[in-house]
Design a protein around this nucleic acid. Structure first.
Length: 800
DNA sequence: TAATTCGCTAGACCGA
DNA sequence: TCGGTCTAGCGAA
């Protein structure tokens, strides 16, 4: 058969068992659609370390595991961090799985390694192939002879979203009984709705005779659109399993994968994910959870309506299950329902497209498909990077720790950053300095890595952390070399982005790339100190924080020596008061001087100048850490740590606090602040405050029966459950403190059960509004009484 | 199933 | 009714 060269975008990898062999398949997006190619040469394998290669090889060769599993081939391999290593290859993944359980029981084998790395993932890592990037294949028929990645700057992907409305007669929908009423299908250029057996005015709704005809038509439409990515909102747990089950009930199949197969369930810890082959299923709900862990998005509640409101400031209509049933049964309002269904798909698609550049970049860097990355954790991303590097440098990947080791690690936390207690009160003329990417740059600059630790070279004795750990100066460690390449890429991209206008579409792309790199850079330190990490190192993690504390305190001291006052410092930052007679230029010169003395890629940055700032006093009389507000010379407020930024405070408290901070910092007008507070107290007392301003949001973090202390949120949740509401672990509930009850917990009710006006005004004044505001006003000499009864004029003029 | 530590604050609970 | 201790949640970095 003739050889030919294929170029396309790599979307996916999996394996199938074919003539008794697990065979890797790659799915490549080409002009005509998604094609698959096979690599029958790549075998599942893992490593064992042994005492005596010859003896072990002999034993293992003859061994039969389970009911007939055998090792296909054994090869002695060289590893840079281990001796006497054998590579065991298998015909199938199933053989490997059976064998790995028993192999360590053999007399000459000591340990096994890399036995728990999924076959398909490992293929991409070993072959250095990047999903969502270009791939060049040399093939014979559909057999892969060679595969390599090439850079495609901005590949376009065709995505579609779908959403179901289902019947739920007085209970949660059950796919075994309850039909799908509608399916919406959104594409970049149009959205359609499919339904059955009813009449619709809207021409975008296609009506079929019955449910299965609708489902089959939908299946055909999806296939016809040649999508690269199909997105859902919670399709992992709802839409996919549901439609699959419905199709099965009617002896049909929802087979939309690129190889003609049905969606498959894949367990991802406690939940199941739905995996398609080739075409990538991106569950936007999962993706947003993932992104929120890295602070890419900041979301309180993860239901679609809340998310859309937060991201796009759009109040989307929510039609509840009972109403859906009523509309369907009576046949009134069907178009409205169809529109609602369509909107869900439209917004799901919109979010998918918005964050796809970031997810794609992560896919390229960690060499895993969208399906994996869209549901990954920080530790998994770091692990992919480390495993790829281990492969490149012929290192054996460390095993996961056992439960005992995990326990030991957890019982022994690693000392973290240094936080200086601030001088409370108003301060003028500030400069804020901070180290850019402090922990990663320490790792790079001091070569902090498990494999460079405890070096005995003479010159390495100079590279010692404040807590006395030595790191090699001669040979770059595993982690620093990964970090350095990520760091350099990021610097280069940031430089490029700086040249562009922010509205330039190229800018958004570069921004996504640098953001992806930043996420990964910042995850390494956490991974080193993470109890379940394969590469946990107390020594490394504690050396990093020890250096960090030393550097940040050193900068503080140097600043004081240079004539500035050090107001505050937290982990990687220094807040300076610029005294009379000093200028911004002096700060710049100071930063420059510091940077000349910092090693390697470490860098102190001038974050900005601030006209004024406020730090507050704790109940104990000390200055409160991690709580401050600043205003710059353009009038921009920066509020940190205060109730204003916390979700577990009511809007009335938060907004009033912000108004007070604003009045004090930007206008220097505490009288105005007092007036604002008084007006709000009056409004609360008169029962005029709207429920929306009174809700306190809190997450239910465990099962309701697992709480020792029953706080208001738990009490409210329990009452709601008694009324038949479902509250899952991890859900965020909103409650209001009502008039009826003794303790605060007694009075707490879920917001949806509280009538307008039925709130405890004393609680909201005494426990929400005043505490939020008095913190600020106290620094200006006001007392609680001044807030309640009216302003007083004293000793403030000194500030203004 | 799962990145880290530091820090603030509330409300419940307990004993005087 | 008070103050101290503990649980719990969330934010900063």
């Amino acid at each position: 058969m003739p050889k030919k060269t294929i170029k396309g975008i790599l979307l996916d990898v999996d394996y199938v068992n074919k003539s008794g062999k697990s065979t890797i398949r790659l799915f490549v997006k080409e002009k005509q659609g998604i094609e698959s190619y096979e690599d029958p040469e790549f075998r599942p394998f893992f490593f064992v370390t042994v005492n005596d290669e010859a003896k072990a090889e002999k034993d293992l060769k003859a061994a039969v595991f389970g009911e007939g599993a055998k090792i296909d081939s054994i090869k002695k391999v060289e590893k840079s961090n281990a001796e006497h290593v054998l590579k065991l290859s298998f015909k199938t993944v199933q053989d490997l799985v059976i064998s790995r359980k028993e192999v360590t029981g053999f007399p000459n084998t000591i340990d096994k390694n890399e036995h728990d790395i999924p076959f398909a993932s490992r293929y991409l890592l070993d072959k250095r192939l990047e999903p969502m990037n270009g791939i060049e294949l040399i093939v014979e028929g559909n057999k892969i002879l060679e595969a390599k990645t090439y850079e495609v700057k901005n590949p376009e992907f065709r995505a579609g979203a779908f959403d179901l409305e289902t019947h739920s007669p007085g209970r949660f929908s059950d796919p075994k009984k309850d039909p799908i009423l509608m399916i919406s299908f959104a594409l970049p250029e149009k959205t359609i709705v499919l339904s059955h057996g009813k009449e619709f005015k809207d021409k975008n709704t296609e009506v079929f005779d019955n449910e299965i005809k609708m489902i089959d038509a939908f299946t055909e439409k999806v296939k016809h659109e040649n999508l690269d990515i199909i997105t859902t909102y919670n399709g992992d747990s709802f839409d996919f399993p549901y439609i699959k089950e419905r199709a099965t009930r009617f002896d049909s199949k929802f087979a939309i994968s690129s190889d003609g197969s049905e969606p498959k369930e894949r367990s991802k810890g406690r939940d199941t994910a739905i995996k398609l082959v080739g075409i990538q299923h991106l569950d936007v709900y999962q993706m947003l959870r993932f992104l929120s862990r890295f602070g890419v998005v900041s979301l309180i509640k993860f239901d679609l309506e809340s998310v859309v409101e937060r991201l796009y400031d759009v109040k989307k209509e929510k039609i509840k299950a009972e109403e859906i049933n009523a509309i369907w049964e009576k046949g009134e309002g069907l178009d409205r329902l169809a529109n609602y269904c369509a909107e869900d798909s439209i917004y799901t698609l919109k979010m998918a497209y918005q964050y796809l550049p970031l997810v794609s970049e992560l896919c390229k860097i960690v060499k895993q498909p969208v399906f994996e990355v869209g549901r990954a954790s920080a530790s998994m991303l770091v692990e992919y990077l480390i495993m790829a590097k281990c492969g490149e440098t012929k290192r054996l990947v460390a095993n996961k720790p056992d439960d005992y080791a995990i326990q030991q690690r957890m019982m022994n936390p690693i000392k973290g950053g240094y936080v200086k207690e601030p001088e409370p009160g108003l301060h003028e003329n500030l400069a804020v300095l901070d180290f850019s990417s402090l922990y990663p740059t320490i790792m790079i600059s001091h070569n902090v890595s498990p494999d460079s630790l405890g070096c005995k070279h003479k010159e390495c004795m100079e590279n010692v952390s404040p807590n006395k750990h030595y790191f090699c100066k001669k040979k770059k460690g595993l982690m620093p070399s990964i970090l350095e390449s990520l760091f350099e890429k990021r610097m280069k991209i940031k430089k490029e982005a700086k040249k562009l206008d922010k509205s330039d579409p190229k800018f958004a792309l570069l921004n996504a790339r640098q953001h992806a790199l930043k996420i990964l850079l910042n995850s390494f330190y956490g991974y080193l100190g993470y109890s379940r990490s394969r590469f946990y190192s107390r020594e490394c993690a504690s050396a990093i924080t020890a250096w960090a504390r030393q550097y940040v305190q050193w900068v503080g001291k140097e600043a004081e020596n240079a004539g500035f006052n050090l107001l505050y410092s937290d982990t990687d930052s220094a807040f300076l008061i610029i005294p009379k007679g000093k200028k911004g230029k002096d700060v710049e010169a100071f930063v420059e001087k510091i940077n000349k003395q910092l090693p390697g890629v470490m860098n102190l940055e001038l974050e900005g100048f601030f006209k004024r700032g406020i730090f507050v006093t704790k109940e104990s009389g000390e200055g409160a850490k991690k709580k401050y507000a600043l205003i710059d010379y353009k009038g921009n407020l920066k509020i940190v740590g205060f109730e204003y930024v916390r979700r577990d405070w009511s809007l009335i408290a938060k907004d009033t606090q912000k108004a007070v901070i604003d009045a004090v910092l930007s206008e220097g007008n505490p009288d105005k602040a007092i007036k604002i507070v008084k007006a709000k107290i009056k409004e609360l007392k008169e029962g005029k405050t709207k429920n929306a301003d009174l809700i306190v949001f809190t997450q239910i973090k465990r099962r309701l029966d697992k709480y020792d202390a029953i706080g208001p949120h738990v009490a409210a949740a329990k009452k709601a459950v008694a009324k038949g509401k479902e509250i899952g672990v991890g859900s965020v509930i909103g409650y209001i403190i009502t008039k009826s009850g003794k303790s605060i917990s007694d009075k707490a009710q879920l917001q949806e059960y509280v009538k307008e006006g039925n709130y405890d005004s004393d609680y909201y004044i005494g426990h929400q509004l005043i505490p939020a505001v008095i913190k600020i006003m106290r620094e200006l000499g006001y007392s609680k009484e001044d807030l309640i009864h009216g302003g007083k004029q004293h000793k403030l003029s000194q500030f203004f």
